[in-house]
Design a protein around this nucleic acid. Structure first.
Lengths: 314, 314
DNA sequence: GCGAGCCATAACTATTATCAATACCATGTC
DNA sequence: GACATGGTATTGATAATAGTTATGGCTCGC
């Protein structure tokens, strides 16, 4: 095997590429310019290729240098992941943990879950970010998040998920609605019912639509949150589907709405954790999901299951 | 950013895991045992975690050590890829290049292509391996191959492909066959024609079947190579589809078979290069494909196209 | 209880990474 | 054309560290 470069040399190359000059790059990595010069020169010798074009107005990477730069970034990222994974393996669920949550889950789940989580893992510092699934997954892919709580199923590449909870849909309508008196519903009851839904981008909209394949959304109105959605239902603009989690959290309390369950097999969505495939904190993400599940249903135990890959390659 | 470990330390950890003892691992990486001991100890200090259980009968990794080991392997693989990519970028298509080829391409394409390739890239040393697509793709994923020549389309994860040539199908039958006199064929002519095909595992079998969706294979006989296949056709056992490339290479010369083309749009398969997604030699694989295409059709130029990902994630 | 095998420690050495100082080189300004 | 400016390369001294040999101590199997 030919000689390998040093992580330090790769780090220097990255700094050089970012600052466009030996001297400024050296400053950025807290060494003197000759040190960095020598390191780059040795890197070039190891690789047998000129990586940098030295000029009077600074330094620029050669095409080969660009290729190596990209690889160097990957090596550094893997190395950093190793450190994180080691710390996580040594003492799981401690330290800062960046968790994304979708808006149709966050306000209803977190108040129940966060106190229990703090009690269970006092050293864990959960940083929250609320956003749509797409943007959360982007953040996972770019390592800006460690895990996310989302609704499943959801197609995505480079992302793995594990379901932790089933969230049943309930039908909500004004008290004078034709279905308000029905005991239980089946999806076919909604065949010609135009539903009020959240605006595009919310996965709840798609999951609700998939319940009633023949049903349609009212295209003239779309709510921006579940809270405004129930206000619209209360105003008599139509009916909608709500996740039980939100109803249990008091979303429709004292609203005077009729809320009806579905006959089994109940319609609903799965709530799950998601993480970047290969993430250093994948194991912790699963454990976090398990902790959340436990705090939702103390006593019960979910059957073990392998993490399922939503993407097909990686 | 916390302190990073050294590639050397990771290399030592890998050796330690593989040999199960400090002293033997040290021998394997050509250092003395105290050196390796100190390196592992420092690695543990950097990561803040005990990685190795020292015992009188050797050393074993802790669970955290196993996690770090897996990560370390990834880091090392990335670092090695960097070296390879640098060399490839500095002087593309030189040195050893491990190329896989499927059996329905190799005997007909290589005699035409290899001499031209040697002329074009004298420093390139092509090591060939002939195998079925599945096994070639496995080898690509495990880095045992740099690229492969296969027939497309073919579903696979972690693999990217680029088409370089269209290989038309020709219908071959005994001279007394009912279709032997037809000028040109359309796929519907094969509706009730039981075809002789290669045995399972050969992609040519599937590609041929996909031409005539209603056609069926003779399940009692399956050939192991195109050469035995034409022998079977000659014996009057039935008809088959052959790639033009094989016919052009003389597969049916002096066999006394009827060989008929299809009406446009002609049926066929694409021949393309495949490489592991993220491979250090991806660019070279594309260039190799281009060189092969050029040697097949001097003068023509294929339109530029981006490499297409067969997998959906990476 | 003793030898074999194995890891840890200590003291020393060789290597190399780093620094401060300086030489050198291209470019734009007066 | 002399000159300041902003950059890289070179040099020689020094500090840090990775490596070695020698040794000690531990556990296990006989």
């Amino acid at each position: 095997m030919s000689q390998l470069p040093t992580l330090r040399q790769l780090q220097f190359l990255i700094a050089l590429a970012e600052h466009g000059s030996f001297s400024r790059a050296a400053e950025a990595v807290f060494v003197t310019q000759p040190t960095l010069s020598a390191a780059i020169k040795e890197l070039e010798m190891i690789l047998g290729t000129v990586l940098v074009e030295r000029g009077a107005r600074g330094a620029a990477l050669t095409p080969a240098g660009e290729v190596v730069l990209e690889r160097a970034r990957r090596v550094m990222a893997e190395a950093e992941d190793l450190v994180i994974a080691a710390q996580a393996a040594g003492e799981p669920l401690t330290g800062p943990f960046k968790l994304g949550v979708i808006p149709t889950i966050a306000p209803f789940l977190l108040p129940r879950v966060l106190p229990a989580l703090r009690a269970l893992h006092p050293k864990l510092e959960v940083f929250l970010r609320e956003d749509l699934t797409d943007r959360l997954f982007d953040a996972l892919r770019e390592r800006r998040l460690d895990a996310a709580l989302v609704a499943l199923p959801y197609e995505a590449t480079m992302i793995e998920t594990k379901a932790i909870w089933s969230d049943e849909f309930l039908f909500a309508c004004p008290p004078d609605h034709r279905l308000a008196g029905a005991g239980k519903l089946s999806p076919s009851d909604l065949a010609d019912e135009p539903l009020l839904l959240l605006e595009d981008g919310h996965c709840l909209r798609d999951h609700a639509l998939s319940v009633c394949s023949t049903g349609s959304a009212r295209s003239d109105f779309a709510a921006t949150s579940l809270h405004t959605l129930v206000q619209m239902v209360k105003s008599g603009l139509g009916a909608t589907l709500l996740p039980r989690m939100a109803v249990d959290a008091g979303l429709v309390d004292q609203m005077g709405l009729a809320v009806l369950p579905f006959d089994p097999p109940v319609a609903g969505r799965e709530i799950g954790v998601a993480w970047r495939k290969g993430s250093a904190r994948a194991e912790e993400a699963i454990q976090l999901g398990e902790a959340i599940r436990a705090s939702l249903a103390p006593g019960e135990k979910m059957q073990d299951g392998l993490a399922t890959a939503s993407g097909t390659a990686g």
